[in-house]
Amino acid sequence: MRGARRGLSLLPLLAGVAAFAVAADDPYQRQRARMLEEIRADYVDTAIHIDKEAADPRVMDAMASVPRHEFVTPDMRRLAYANRPLPIGHGQTISQPYIVAVMTDLLNVRPGDRVLEVGTGSGYQAAVLAELVAEVYSIEIIEPLAAQAAARLQRLGYDNVVVRHGDGYYGWEEHDPFDAIVVTAAASHVPPPLIAQLRNGGRMIIPVGTRFLVQELLLVVKDETGSVTTKQLLPVRFVPLTGGH
């Protein structure tokens, strides 16, 4: 904790130093490593639901590189790498790291992909995606959040993310089709325009639940012929029934 605080006070000083120097002295590096350990453990736990024992190494690399502490409010920095969601103001949250990892992983993105995000929030999910794909387009309906996230992503050098303030229901037609779509904004249903803007063979992920508690992950899959199915995944190790019927 003390280290974290000292690190904070040093941040302005370090701002001008070369990137590798920052990385070497990054006071959050150990916390981030611990976060990755927790994500790995959660993966092992939930393997039965997500059909994977471990995350795609590229996703883990992305989680390791994004400075999560930059995406939370100053009073939450000490908790930035805890494996839990955190409030970011405006009644919104930054998702639990494990959930971000699983959601990103389930999208099966490739380096050249173009991804749409509806509900930028803090911009963290967009940053993780930006480490993995060519272009990220992100729409946020709450204006101050959109402005903050855009400034933050720019400051951190995520040039391949474009943030726009607006209504995400109709997607972003100028840039469609998308290889993957992430919908974190609350919606009463999956918006038909988003399904339309998903490329054949593309995937869309939606966390279902409340702001703090993800009840399930909804994976929408559009196959090569354009037909759509969903997969409902429980992000926790739990089977409702043991024994036979």
Binding site: I141, D167, Y169, A187, S188, H189, V190, P191, P192, I195, A196, V220, V228, T230
Partner: peptide, 18 residues
């Protein structure tokens, strides 16, 4: 006024209507 509420829980994935 600006963003419609669009309350339609359970809407089919094949629906095209808003």
């Amino acid at each position: 006024a600006r963003v419609p509420l669009r309350h339609a829980p359970g809407l089919s994935l094949r629906a095209t209507d808003e």
